[in-house]
Structure formats: C-alpha cells, structure tokens
Simulated scan of single mutants.
Amino acid sequence: MKKNYSFYSVLTAIPITLLILVGFSSGQPGNFTGSPGDGGATCTQCHSVSSANFGGLAALTGLPNGYMANQSYSLNLDVQGSTSTKIGFNITAELADGTKIGSWTPGTGTRLRTDSNGLTHNSTSTGSGQNSWDMTWTAPATDLGAVTFYYVTNQTNNNGSTSGDQVTTGQSGALLTNGDETFTAFEMYPTQVTSLLNINLSNTDNGTLMIYNMTGSKVKTFKLDRLNQLNMSDLTSGIYLAQLVVDNKISVERFIKQ
C-alpha cells in the first residue's frame, strides 16, 4: 500500500509549529541572550531574520557603574523607536566564565525564564504591544567579580510565523563596590578617550587601576601615583569600566574608548 509520507509529515509538524508560536508569544523561557552561559544562542535559533527593519534599538538603563552586595536595582529594558507591534526579550547576568549571578524579580509584562536565571516577556506583554519592561536585579551577597548583563530583543512582523523578524542583542557591565567604604576622592578625564586617560588621586599617593571590558574581562592594570596619564590607544572602541583600588577600598567609573 502506498504511504503518504508528506501528509503524515504535515500532521507531525502542526503541533510542533503551534508549540513554538504559542510558547514564544508567552515568553521565551530558554537561554537565548547570546551570552557565554547561554551558549551564544539568540532568538535567531528559531526566528528567521530578513531584511525587514522595524527601527528599534534596545537600551538597558538603571545599571550603576558599581553595584553593592545584596543591593536590589530597578532596571528598564526599552526598545526605542520600533514600529513593531509585537516585541519580546530575554535577559540574564553572568560572570566572565558564564556563571549566572544575582537574582531576578519580574515586573509588569515579564516572567522568569525556566532556569530562573533571567527574565523574558509574558503573553500580556506581547498582546499589548509593550516595548519597555521594568525589572529588578539583586546583586549577590559576596564579591564575585565583574558582572555583564546580556539581553536580546525580537521585533516581529506579527505574521503568525517565525519569518521576517528583527533580532538585536546588547550587553552592559558593572563591578562590585564596597558600599560605605567606596573610595571616591579621585578625578578621571576625559570620559571619551582617544589615547590618554588621566587619573588624579587627591588624598593618596598610590593605588591600583584595573580596566575591564563589557564582557567582564580585565584588559589592563596600572600602579598609580598622585598624577597619572595612562595610555589607552591600544584598546578597541567601546565602553570600559575603570576600577580604582586604594587601601582595599573600591570605586568604579565608566569611560568610552573612541
């Protein structure tokens, strides 16, 4: 008897397709931020990205240059200027080796990922055209080092399939400070550096400055005097964190390498 394999293949594919569409509209609970801990995977694992451009740029705000242990921070992920009416996201926080760090509290239109190590949108969010999400991240209880926040957004064309969408990724970093012991009596300029970064210590004669990139990796270390001109010309363009340590007290500032 002749078997209609195509017919059976279609029947098999229907529930799988429905699972993807229904599940993702209520949030992408998996690990899809593009981070090392998420295996570099993003929404493009399932969504076919075309030349469609909805114009939206994702921005994470509310993150301090330096975070304090056990402190909770109110963050906002916003997709600015998008013409898409159905947008989703996925966010997590990690150390440089991909270890997840801190804890998350969902806000309106968000829910925890399956692993609880990040957030994603929920069905209320995608049904309302929401493009901005408030959330809370709580820092770990001890000094675990530099943390990087990885996020991905998916602006869809709402055509009932996974084709023709726009996926964007981003990341932001922060370092641990010591709260009341933070050392703040120093001057750093300019904040947009082409070659030389100036560090002036007003209340001490020495300290150590460590430069971190946005993936949490240390790229430079300097021993400081009272007045310092530090060569940054070999750094690639991007955002960096300068962590100053003086007598076991820490302060963090951010600068841009042009």
Rank of each mutant, 00 (worst) to 15 (best):
Q71I: 10
V22Q: 05
S26C: 01
S84C: 07
T215P: 00
S9W: 12
L21N: 07
M214R: 06
L224Q: 12
P36K: 13
N90Y: 07
F7V: 00
P106K: 06
T184N: 14
L63V: 07
T17P: 00
T204S: 08
T184F: 01
K257Q: 05
N198H: 15
S35Y: 07
G173N: 13
K3V: 05
R113D: 05
N157G: 12
N231E: 11
L95E: 13
T142R: 03
H121V: 02
A58W: 03
S74C: 00
S103E: 06
S116I: 13
T215G: 05
N198K: 14
V245E: 15
S51R: 09
D115V: 12
K218W: 01
G56I: 07
T44H: 05
F54S: 11
F24T: 14
F222V: 04
T120P: 00
T61F: 06
T92Y: 07
P29M: 14
N203K: 06
L19R: 09
L227I: 15
L201S: 04
G129R: 15
D234F: 02
T136Q: 08
S50M: 04
G238L: 10
V79L: 05
A185Y: 10
S128Q: 09
H121I: 01
Y212D: 09
L77C: 05
Q71D: 08
K249T: 08
L244H: 14
N154I: 07
G160K: 14
G102R: 00
Q28R: 07
Y8I: 02
G55I: 06
H47W: 08
S116D: 09
T204M: 03
A174T: 15
T42H: 05
Y67I: 03
S35W: 12
G179S: 04
Y240E: 02
M68D: 04
L60P: 08
G30P: 03
V152Y: 07
F7C: 02
V49K: 10
V246P: 03
T42W: 01
F7N: 08
V245I: 08
T108A: 15
F255L: 00
L241Q: 15
N198E: 08
T105H: 06
L201G: 04
G66F: 13
T17I: 04
T182P: 02
L63D: 07
Q166H: 12
W137I: 06
L227C: 02
T108K: 09
L227K: 14
W137D: 04
T124I: 07
V219S: 09
V252C: 11
A41L: 00
T105R: 11
V193F: 10
I16F: 13
T17L: 02
L227Q: 14
G56Q: 09
Y5F: 09
F183H: 11
L19T: 15
N65R: 11
Y67S: 10
L19V: 07
L19Y: 12
G238D: 04
A139I: 09
D247G: 08
S123V: 13
G66W: 12
S103L: 02
Y151G: 01
V22H: 08
A141F: 14
C43V: 10
L19H: 11
L201T: 05
N122E: 13
D205S: 15
S163F: 01
S202T: 15
N154W: 09
M188P: 05
G109N: 13
A41F: 05
R254F: 01
A58N: 12
S132G: 14
